[in-house]
Design a protein around this nucleic acid. Sequence first.
DNA 1: GTCTATAAGTAGATAGAC
DNA 2: GTCTATCTACTTATAGAC
Lengths: 210, 210
Amino acid sequence: MKTRDRILHVSLLLFNEEGEAPQTAVDISNALGISPGNLYYHFKGKDAIIRALFESFEEEMRLILRGSSGGVASIEDNWVYIYIILEEIYDFRFFYRNLGVLLDRYPDLAVRFRALVAEQRGAILRVLSDLAKAGIITIDPRLREALTDQIMMTLTFWLVADSLNRKEHEGAALIHRTVFQVMCLIVPYMGEAGFDALTHMIDHYERSVQ
Amino acid sequence: MKTRDRILHVSLLLFNEEGEAPQTAVDISNALGISPGNLYYHFKGKDAIIRALFESFEEEMRLILRGSSGGVASIEDNWVYIYIILEEIYDFRFFYRNLGVLLDRYPDLAVRFRALVAEQRGAILRVLSDLAKAGIITIDPRLREALTDQIMMTLTFWLVADSLNRKEHEGAALIHRTVFQVMCLIVPYMGEAGFDALTHMIDHYERSVQ
DNA sequence: GTCTATAAGTAGATAGAC
DNA sequence: GTCTATCTACTTATAGAC
């Protein structure tokens, strides 16, 4: 593994586990067992590392979002799709624990992040529209935007929201709970079938956190 | 106005307008026209200021939450109640733009913030239960927790969420939009009356952003 | 590519005079 | 209570040897 890649890999690990703010360029080079000078040879400081990490995230997330066109035609598909998005976010969770600060500090990233968020929103709207066409949900057009915003909010802030409720977090179980939370937003629009779907989901959820 | 209070007042202003992270003790003393030494006489640095500000917020928010017992018996009351909570949060918005980082940096505040969040959650549950008792909403008990979590999420992250959608924010209009957003979460549980309530709210909302 | 050494800049904090 | 002056600690960033 090339040093450049090791730097990115270890930085992501450190940022995710111990937060981005407290890590200095020297901390990162120590964790890698290389000198600060060497780190600066590959990246012009922490900013450049964060930008490179964002680029990876951006690329991977776009791939996932593209995959939504036509591929989500049932409640089960929707469950899986949300799951995949959450896992991707989890891999780069340090971004999401810091959103406000990072967007202020890197206006260029803020622009690109906003564009990515807009794409996510578009994907959610597309999925909802597919579910509506398939007769799975029925939704007042005036509530469609609000529902989309709520789903977006959950996808964006589940990580920080969880840290407000409990001190330690636990990856996999949290992702499950969050998919469940998103599905609960949709259930009210499933009419009679919503009751069964909810029962089914709770079974599934209980089993998965077992 | 005593210097101690001026420090708190100006710090809150600076943190809210330009973010907490970039402000140093010297920046704050400059903004006040006093010396750094003087600032350190009153507060042991920025940390102490932030703690004092949190205390104000905590106290005011608790007062608001206490006011919910029995006082919210209609959709209109609920609208006003949410509005008041959002305004209080807006006054101390720098906390909410930084939540992840602040909770990591001040574990003692994190504990108290979590307790406050739990109280907020309790207040929301109480309001929902009041609305249910009054026959205004009907909600599957299995969805009640999810709805509460979702309302909490909106109340907590509306500010950052907005900055992900647009570059500039605009206080009053944003608060209105957010109350509307919370009401949209409740509408699906209002049955037939939901349609009218929604129409009514949209009228109200359109007028208010005019 | 990688190291050591060091410069340059910044934030936090205190001592002592007024 | 308030100021000036100063000190320490830390982070970033670069120069030059290997």
